[in-house]
């Protein structure tokens, strides 16, 4: 038994080395380059210019077309509902319809804000100290 083991060890170098190898437990490489690279099955083997350095937009206006802030900021000319989608003539008259006002100050006086008095203004500016002066 022992002799066989010795013989086998001695012959180990003479044995062929398999091409297939045990590569060990798989682990995620520490540094992975996430820069966009062409897909291995892409027929062109290249990415469009819009895939650049992690920045998906070629210009600020392109970025703004896709940006999100409390909903899309997109206002593409020509798209339904966007600014510039319709000519001014199609938007109707500039004057507000009857009963609609653009500003509170156009309403009858009783609906307007009460003007601040000089004493109130002073009180605000002094942090309330003027009230006790």
């Amino acid at each position: 038994m022992y002799a066989t083991r010795v013989l086998r060890q001695a012959a180990a170098h003479a044995e062929r080395t398999p091409l297939i190898r045990f590569i060990g437990k798989r682990s995620i490489p520490e540094n992975v380059d996430h820069t966009p690279q062409p897909h291995p099955a892409s027929p062109s083997g290249a990415l469009p210019s819009s895939f650049g350095n992690g920045n998906s937009h070629a210009s600020f206006s392109s970025y703004r077309d896709h940006a999100q802030q409390h909903g899309p900021l997109r206002k593409t000319i020509g798209a339904a509902g966007g600014i510039g989608a319709q000519s001014a003539a199609h938007l109707g008259p500039v004057e507000p319809p009857k009963g609609v006002y653009f500003d509170r100050n156009e309403l009858p006086e009783r609906f307007r804000r009460t003007p601040l008095t000089a004493a109130e203004i002073e009180a605000v500016e002094t942090g309330g100290a003027a009230l006790f002066g």
Partner: peptide, 19 residues
């Protein structure tokens, strides 16, 4: 973007241009 055969263009991590 779609390519000439209607496929969605992606990179090697399956990302479109909006990553």
């Amino acid at each position: 973007e779609l390519d000439e055969r209607g496929r969605v263009v992606i990179d090697s991590e399956y990302r479109t241009k909006a990553s």
